[in-house]
Design a protein around this nucleic acid. Structure first.
Lengths: 229, 229
DNA sequence: TGAGTAAATTAGAAACGCCTAATTCTTATA
DNA sequence: TATAAGAATTAGGCGTTTCTAATTTACTCA
């Protein structure tokens, strides 16, 4: 299937929106995600429907067909492998990889991606903790995690995933020792929309607005730490 | 200067054609190079001229302006660094790199290219022996070389450059030990358009059509080898 | 030097991806 | 249940890059 980079972007957007805004994907969601106007989305959905990549019931939302989902997964695989590669081999910051991967994902060959994957030893997650679809494009089961905001004071958890692409925010988080794999203890949850945490790899306590804390997913460590005085 | 990938391709093509078909570049040359029809070239030349990237005297050929040349050199720098990188770090064959680099060259950031260059230790030539423009985009002086076809029987020379992008041909050459840096001895030049050479890194004698031998540039080793029985 | 040919250009149209303005549909609420 | 608000779609248009067909220009050679 020979698709334009723009079409791939639409399919990726629909996949991502479907996964996170669990349920049906609306024209306006896609428009926001891709920074275009709604009529542009409608006309593209028609083309994608003609190619059997989406099912579009006018006024009722869109769904990917199995073919459309495969394309989306392939693009996402490209994106996340590129992010992992840029971080691990080219010394990119966590905060820089998203934009570069967004442009390259449509222009790398399958050969390129396979060699990247081999070289990185088939990684399962990218630097943000997002799962990387396998080469056979089985739908990724999104690892369940709990937002940082939903833990209680004094719980110690391991950061799994940071669902945020804003370079400014990522730079701040990294500078304060917060990224996937980090162990942190919840110190305080204020009523005015702030949460304070103690990253174990970092000296001082870090405060985050709840909007940011909602995008950080973590799991309980399982051992220890459930004991609270 | 914000240019489309297509415009960059035209500027690159004009630069390359100017360098090799020494003199003025014709509309039809560009059309052949980019695999489009001549009217398409004419209309693009108008747009490039409006942006002061080329000087186009209708019916008389095109030239790059200094700005246009800088853009071309930047694209060529991207291309050749990518080729070097794909070969050295991702295990690409000599014959595979051209197409991949052609697609990626327009979509990598300056940051990406700088990190590639640093990682490869600022290489001066790509896997084909083509010179890589420096980061400040000084015009590359094309290293002078003599086509293989222009040496005499029994001369021993070092291959400098293989000016051919055909993957089939490159695969053949590589399989027979012929690439930049290889030392070979000219064994026979037939009147029917064949040249036979002995690569020193390879057991048997290899025969090449003169069309191919014309695209292989070499330099005399300087020592020895000028002695002929 | 003048005619014929080859190359380049102009003219006009199509596909793509985007837009604004106008219209239609859905849904929530009075 | 009727209507008003909001979302989505249709209508129509623009810039980009390409094409084919028609025309113009430059050059060759008789």
């Amino acid at each position: 299937m020979m698709l334009s980079a723009v079409m791939e972007d639409y399919l990726k957007a629909i996949y991502v929106l479907h996964a996170e805004a669990d349920g049906n994907v609306k024209t306006s969601d896609i428009a926001t995600q891709l920074d275009v106007k709604p009529p542009t989305v409608t006309s593209m959905l028609k083309k994608l429907a003609e190619k059997n990549l989406v099912n579009h019931e006018p006024y009722q939302g869109v769904e990917l067909t199995p073919t459309g989902e495969s394309v989306a997964l392939e693009v996402i695989r490209h994106h996340r492998l590129l992010e992992a590669y840029l971080t691990e081999e080219l010394g990119y910051d966590w905060s820089e990889v998203h934009d570069e991967a967004d442009r390259l994902e449509h222009h790398v060959s399958e050969t390129f991606i396979d060699r990247l994957a081999t070289r990185l030893d088939e990684p399962r997650v990218d630097p943000h903790g997002d799962p990387i679809p396998s080469a056979d494009l089985d739908p990724v089961e999104d690892p369940s995690g709990t937002a940082l905001i939903d833990f209680s004071v004094d719980e110690t958890v391991i950061i799994q995933r940071v669902r945020n692409q804003d370079p400014e925010i990522l730079r701040y988080l990294e500078a304060h020792g917060i990224k996937p794999g980090t162990r942190v203890t919840i110190k305080e949850v204020t009523p005015i929309g702030m949460i304070s945490i103690q990253p174990h790899s970092y000296e001082t306590i870090v405060s985050l607005p709840t909007s940011v804390a909602r995008s950080i997913w973590a799991n309980q460590t399982g051992e220890a730490s459930t004991s609270v005085p």
